[in-house]
Simulated scan of single mutants.
Amino acid sequence: MSWNEPGGGNNKPKDPWGGGDQGPPDLDEALKKLQQKFSGLFGGRSGSGGNSSSGGGLSGALLLVIAAAALVVWGLLGFYQIDQQERAVVLRFGKYYDTVQPGLQWNPPLIDQVIKVNTTKVRAVSFREIMLTKDENIVEMRMSVQYVIDDPSKFVLKVRSPENSLQHAAQSAIRHVVGDTRMDLVLTEGREQIGIEVHQRLQRYLDMYETGIHVSKVNVDESKPPSQVQAAFDDVIKAREDEERLKNEAQAYANGIVPEARGRAQRQVEESNAYKEQVIANAQGEAERFTKLLTEYRKAPEVTRERLYLDAVQNVFTNATKVMVDVEGGNNVMYLPLDKMTEHAATKSTTRGQRVDSSNIRELTNAVVEQLRRDESNSSSRRGGR
């Protein structure tokens, strides 16, 4: 049914809410009813004569409640928590105000701006660069930088993009250090020293820029020549490794031969000292023997002379292998083959299980001398009988 459909005999429009003769609800009346309800809620009185005054008091009380509630909410929004690994930079009306330590903190909302910064997290940035060395060779290096935020206020306020500044400063530092280093050091044992020098130079740059960044460590992850000449550089590195290996082998050989030579030299020195002591002892013994022999000679010269003669002959016969004896008064020469006699004696001794030594030869010589004496005495007796 449409709103303007006739209803009843008086030809008035029909109320769609079923109100009959009533028109649409009055908005002012609804607001008054709502004010009366609030006035009754907060202790006001409603009546026909006091509607204006009660409405004014209601409006003031409502505003106070709303203001108090807003103030409470505003105060509660100002509380925040800072973790142990964080620091907070506080800006008041856009200007630096304070750096807040960990714990429960409060700052007025909409007035202060709080920026939290993690100061214990170790961050890392890596980059790869191709650069010239001191001897004008091209090398490719990959480096990583580990850092932490040391000063949150400088990190947030002094530099627009601290991490980009860090990367640019690191590239500048590595180029400066590599530009003062020969290529062989860059590719081999000089990488650790390069990392130390880059670390020091990079930290000076960051302190000068006031980035608030502290560099923990700089690692040279890789250093290699360009791929176009990689094969030639591999040959050079192999040659250096061979050189180092040969040096180590030579050093090992020297370490083995030098102590041995020193040992032989020491042994010769000891043998020389022993020979010296032996010669001195023999000389002293011979001198003492000669002194005692002189004493005995003075007591019995003939006997001592005979004994010295026999000892001399014995020594001569000991070293001789053949003896020719001229028999006095005859034309025959006696030949004594001492070597054959010695061999015969050695064979007999071996058969008997005996060992031939200087004592055996001395006994054989004594026997020959005694035989010569008997032959000489026999010859003398025969000549006397004639």
Rank of each mutant, 00 (worst) to 15 (best):
L63N: 11
G94S: 04
V65K: 05
L91S: 02
L64Y: 07
L63K: 11
G55E: 09
R87I: 00
Q81N: 13
G57S: 13
V89P: 01
R92Y: 10
L62P: 00
A68L: 15
L64G: 10
G55A: 14
V65E: 07
L71E: 10
G75M: 10
W74T: 10
I82P: 00
A88D: 03
L76H: 08
G75A: 11
Q84F: 05
G56L: 12
V73R: 08
G57Y: 11
L63I: 08
W74A: 05
V73G: 08
I66R: 04
G55Y: 02
R87S: 05
L91N: 02
L77K: 14
E86C: 02
I82K: 03
G57M: 08
Q81F: 09
A67W: 05
Q81W: 13
Q81G: 04
L58G: 03
L77I: 02
L64R: 01
G60E: 03
I66P: 01
L76W: 11
L63Q: 09
D83T: 04
L76G: 13
V65Y: 12
V72C: 07
V72F: 12
A70G: 15
A61F: 03
F93W: 13
L71D: 09
L77H: 09
Q84M: 07
I82D: 00
L77M: 13
R92A: 11
F93Q: 14
L76S: 12
S54T: 10
R92I: 07
A70N: 09
Q84W: 05
R92M: 10
I82T: 08
L71A: 15
A61E: 00
L58Q: 07
S54K: 04
S53F: 07
L71N: 08
G60K: 00
G78R: 00
V73C: 06
V89D: 00
S53E: 12
S54G: 09
G94V: 05
V65A: 12
L77N: 12
S54M: 14
G57K: 11
I82V: 15
I66E: 05
Q84T: 10
V72T: 12
A69E: 06
Q81H: 14
R92F: 06
V89A: 03
L58I: 08
I82H: 01
V72Y: 12
L64V: 08
Q85N: 12
S53P: 01
A88N: 02
V65C: 10
V90R: 01
L63P: 02
Q84N: 11
A70D: 09
Y80I: 01
R87H: 07
R87F: 04
A69I: 13
Q81K: 12
A67G: 15
L77C: 08
V65D: 06
S54I: 02
